[in-house]
Write a protein that binds this DNA or RNA. Structure first.
Lengths: 190, 190
DNA sequence: CTGAAATGTATCCATTGGATACATTATGGA
DNA sequence: TCCATAATGTATCCAATGGATACATTTCAG
């Protein structure tokens, strides 16, 4: 008497992808924490232990979600002829303010995992490469890299200070504007 | 038959302070997460529910610890004639690198709690006031405030990128040096 | 067509944050 | 001094959660 009355197939077929998609969707919908493993499994229609076939533990799931986040960020950033230092910064800030929960998760991994782990390392490298291209100005690679990290640090830091509540900006829009102005007056964007 | 064989008094006397001290000590000793309520209570020699007389829930404990963290930071920063923009930045970075776990907790509160909540708001204001003083240079308050937040954002952001693993710096010392250099070349420190 | 490998389920467990009811101690008025 | 009462701490319970083990179902290669 297999399958009984449910027309759900026993094999899901793409459980890993479904799980990541569901988590990302939740975070983008506003939830600011990872769902419990059971909640996530339930949403997909599978027993909670099934997910452990694809993620060693919950931390691995978190890392994978961060990877999706950086991939999404890379897609959202400008490219081709639209790519320059300023457009990159605006794209980055828009992503941070639009997807606050996801953004926060991306940087909340346990110590030093961003580049050290294959996931999300690969996607992080993509973003860095894009930034290096946007900031390229004929100067040596070292100089360009330093400006990239200064700009990244400033944007990330001010955004995080806002998120944590250390900035006075009343609305996300005003905060975005404030950060943008600070970066422009820093001289990092020639 | 009160007290039985234990010579511990039934009343602890300073449970709240003891709890905060114990948590801060643990974080400074290297643990990078908050202990469980039971673990903490056990260390102090009290039942786990006793702590709930002083903290509404675990999040309140976390906020209180963050308050202690900012107070510690304020104490550690230079003052008097030793206070200037550069010495402040060095002090701030030393604190971040020396007390990484505590520092991380201080900025990991739930959304926008830093200034909005009395704890740790009070202590955060102390630090900001000190920074305003260090960056004072005769310009208008608005201009000074903007430079303070730019410098704070840059230091905090680059530190967090390092912590998360986005920077290449091999050791904390090199990371500290890297961040210091980026801030100096930003022109924020006249 | 069949048996091993892959995928998912059922069920169990320890830990954890938290709630409720009760015990112990401290204290301020009579 | 003595006791009612507030303050402080304990005992015990509960549901949720991440995770482990054993087993069932399905797929697929030879």
């Amino acid at each position: 008497m297999p399958k009984s009355d449910s027309d759900q197939p026993y094999h899901h077929g793409a459980l890993k992808e479904a799980a990541l998609t569901a988590v990302v969707a939740r975070l983008r919908r506003g939830e600011d924490e990872l769902p419990t493993v059971r909640e996530l499994a339930g949403e997909i229609g599978v027993s909670h232990r099934a997910l452990y076939r694809y993620f060693a533990d919950k931390d691995a799931l978190k890392q994978a979600v961060a990877g999706e986040g950086f991939a999404l960020l890379a897609e959202r950033l400008p490219s081709g002829s639209d790519l320059n230092a300023l457009s990159l910064i605006d794209g980055f800030l828009s992503f941070a303010f639009d997807e606050t929960s996801l953004y926060r998760l991306m940087f909340s991994l346990r110590a030093a995992a961003l580049l050290a782990e294959p996931v999300p390392g690969q996607q992080v490298r993509r973003v860095i490469a894009l930034a290096m291209q946007a900031f390229e100005d004929g100067a040596g690679e070292e100089a360009v890299r330093n400006r990239v990290f200064s700009a990244w640090g400033l944007a990330h830091g001010l955004f995080d200070l806002w998120r944590a509540g250390a900035l006075r900006a009343a609305t996300p829009e005003l905060a975005h504007e404030f950060i943008r102005t600070r970066i422009l007056e820093s001289g990092l964007v020639a």
